[in-house]
Design a protein around this nucleic acid. Sequence first.
DNA 1: TTGATACTTCGATCGTTTTCGAAGCATCGT
DNA 2: ACGATGCTTCGAAAACGATCGAAGTATCAA
Lengths: 230, 230
Amino acid sequence: MSNNARFAEIAALAGDPGRASMLNGLMDGRALTASELAQLAGITAQTASSHLTRMTEAGLLAVEKQGRHRYHRLASPAVAQMIESIMRLAAPEVTAKPLRTGPRDAALRAGRTCYDHLAGRLGVSITDALIDAGHLDLGLDAGEVTDSGLSLFARAGIDVEALTARRSRILCRPCLDWSERRPHLAGAIGAALCSHCFNNGWIRRLEGTRAVSVTPNGQRQLRETFGVSL
Amino acid sequence: MSNNARFAEIAALAGDPGRASMLNGLMDGRALTASELAQLAGITAQTASSHLTRMTEAGLLAVEKQGRHRYHRLASPAVAQMIESIMRLAAPEVTAKPLRTGPRDAALRAGRTCYDHLAGRLGVSITDALIDAGHLDLGLDAGEVTDSGLSLFARAGIDVEALTARRSRILCRPCLDWSERRPHLAGAIGAALCSHCFNNGWIRRLEGTRAVSVTPNGQRQLRETFGVSL
DNA sequence: TTGATACTTCGATCGTTTTCGAAGCATCGT
DNA sequence: ACGATGCTTCGAAAACGATCGAAGTATCAA
């Protein structure tokens, strides 16, 4: 197959509303079953099945059999990056009236995971606090952790050295937030911060969604450790 | 329109072979006329026209009228990034037999521009030389110019300081080369190096393509200044 | 074994999209 | 003014892909 045909094939796969929903649903990095994805996309199991097969064959998804379930996940971070780059273009231009959205959306806007890091008001607030305190320096396309940031993360128990050692992944980069339309922290350090929050019970996932809520203890810790006001 | 619908719309636009060809043709950042794009995609002018209209309306392309010509170009670097991220997935997995390609492709593989920096064997060779000499450090997802690299570019007359000052763009990043399947240098420094080569007559664009050829003087200069063996 | 659940395959339908010929509009050169 | 060129609009034909009901396979639970 020609290079261009394969390019078009990949893009076309992401270009169907049903498949787009599924891909977005997998953006938090978890693996979901075919039924969950079907429900998420609002289509029947048969339709979802054929979509999932095609996306798997094209190398967009990886599938893992576990008993009678099939867990589907994004095949690689490169796929997540593609989705993210399309999302960035799809983010509605800044308009005068912010469109009203349902309660489900409200939770997502408040806080959610974006592949493996934090997004929404939560993600942006943390990022802003880190920047304001001079721990972080984010451009539109790149970023870095300052010396004071390094020691802050070290004190919090996040081993930045270990993350830096793995040169296969960028330590620190901005990721444009589709709901806040401003950058939040991504990259290895963003992912580490996110798991740190989960592991210490600072945030909890809302059953069955990408949305996360901050626990009371999490609020206190985030304020005291990182200076985040929510 | 819902966010997901817009996501699917954008992706679907890139998902048609004709449109994909045009988008790829615009990846060097130049603006092309509708007829040029039609020919490039192997479709009639009418078909191309409707495609171009749709992509422009969707915000993927920007168009500039000049007399009876209409110059189309990618609307923003964000669009180029999306295309690049799809390309990365579309790059054929490393296979045993390298598929035979025509002479036109051969020129592209030898050297070409990728949006605003150098790609192909030329781009990869320069990047390799810089890395080997310790001027550059590239991971899979990020990179940086070393101190020796800074002074090298300074000696060559490329003002890295000025590039660093513009925090809106990452200075240095890898971009996966679809023909070589290895990273080449992108980012602000990659773009600066590319224009430097053009401005000093080290490379020349092959009429009407993204392909570039290295001039005899360019070969010498590249070898002497950057240690590149072609 | 029996029934339920998770998922896939098959087949037919239906709506969408692509495509191009023909005609129309705008601009250029002379 | 005139024809040539670049591009767009219109309309119809053809191809394609999404969808779902029905039926089939695999796993689980008892």
